[in-house]
């Protein structure tokens, strides 16, 4: 009966080490074990390898906007199915699944206003868990309305992108959201208002080919995949392996397409510091003129 005794001992030893479900997770990047608590405290950045996990739009706003100051816009916009798009599943079914996955969002974005270290800003955060953060008519419309309101209220604009690009299920209607958002930014740029674009992992396709690339200042989180075409498509087209680090933030910085790479914990402070330099014109033009007149 010696064998049985041995087995029993082994079982006991394992039971001692057993940890309640969900407390630990293995970093998908470096494979180290991290506690959930540690991960939350580090804003979903692996403390061992600095991998920046995707943040939900809600959490992004939570860590960017001062507590209790966020006011959401256009929460009642939701997607339609104008093309009656069916692939292996009808589009409405995909919308419903995405809604569940994103814990109740109606589309891949939250927009609104709030304070960032006391500075009033208009902000949008994309949501990757909703159909890959893809831009359809709702995302395009909410961004455009946000830009238009930021012009009205003379607010700096911040857009945090986490997006695979245009949404195929809305075909050319989604392609036209590139035109719509970039067009709105063309007006915004002439108002003397600042726009900070943040690129998080991943920012690709139509999102990169429109508003995300049009910031006065463009910041990215470390190691984010940023590009026009996805790496798989490029590999297929050129039939070669891609260089190490290709299309990552560091690669883009080196090639001149980013201003800085900023650690997640430093993003809010960096934006506040930048806005000190770029927020000078956010007061209405007439008010500024009045001040000058007074002095004269």
């Amino acid at each position: 009966m010696r064998i049985f005794a041995k087995y029993k001992r082994k079982l006991r030893a394992q039971k001692k080490k057993d940890i309640p479900d969900g407390l630990w997770r293995k970093c998908k990047h470096c494979g180290e074990m991290i506690t959930k608590k540690e991960l939350e405290a580090s804003l979903h950045v692996c403390p061992k390898c600095n991998y920046h996990y995707p943040l939900s739009a809600k959490r992004r706003l939570l860590i960017t906007i001062d507590e209790g100051t966020f006011e959401e816009f256009d929460a009642d916009l939701y997607p339609s199915d104008p093309l009656k798009f069916v692939d292996t599943k009808p589009y409405p079914e995909r919308q419903a699944a995405a809604r569940e996955k994103s814990k109740g969002l109606k589309d891949a974005i939250i927009t609104g206003t709030g304070k960032l270290n006391g500075i009033d800003v208009a902000i949008a955060a994309l949501e990757f868990s909703f159909m890959g953060g893809s831009m359809g008519a709702v995302v395009g419309e909410k961004i455009t309305r946000l830009i238009e309101r930021a012009m009205d209220k003379r607010l700096p604009l911040i857009i945090v992108s986490v997006s695979g690009g245009a949404r195929m299920q809305e075909s050319v209607l989604s392609l036209m959201q590139l035109a719509k958002t970039s067009g709105a930014l063309s007006r915004f740029a002439r108002q003397g208002l600042p726009y900070i674009s943040i690129m998080a992992d991943p920012t690709t396709g139509g999102t990169t080919a429109s508003f995300a690339s049009l910031g006065d200042v463009i910041l990215a989180e470390p190691g984010a995949l940023i590009g026009f075409a996805g790496p798989r498509v490029i590999k297929q087209t050129i039939q070669q392996d891609l260089p190490e680090g290709f299309q990552r933030s560091e690669f883009l910085l080196e090639h001149g397409f980013l201003d800085m790479i900023v650690q997640r914990k430093d993003l809010k402070g960096t934006m506040a510091r930048l806005l000190r330099y770029m927020g000078g014109n956010t007061k209405p033009k007439t008010a500024r003129k009045a001040v000058i007149k007074k002095r004269a």
């Binding site: 916009l77 997607p79 359809g136 036209m176 959201q177 035109a179 719509k180 067009g183």
Partner: peptide, 8 residues
């Protein structure tokens, strides 16, 4: 271009 896109 502003009015392109269909949503609810």
């Amino acid at each position: 271009f502003r009015c392109m896109g269909v949503f609810e």
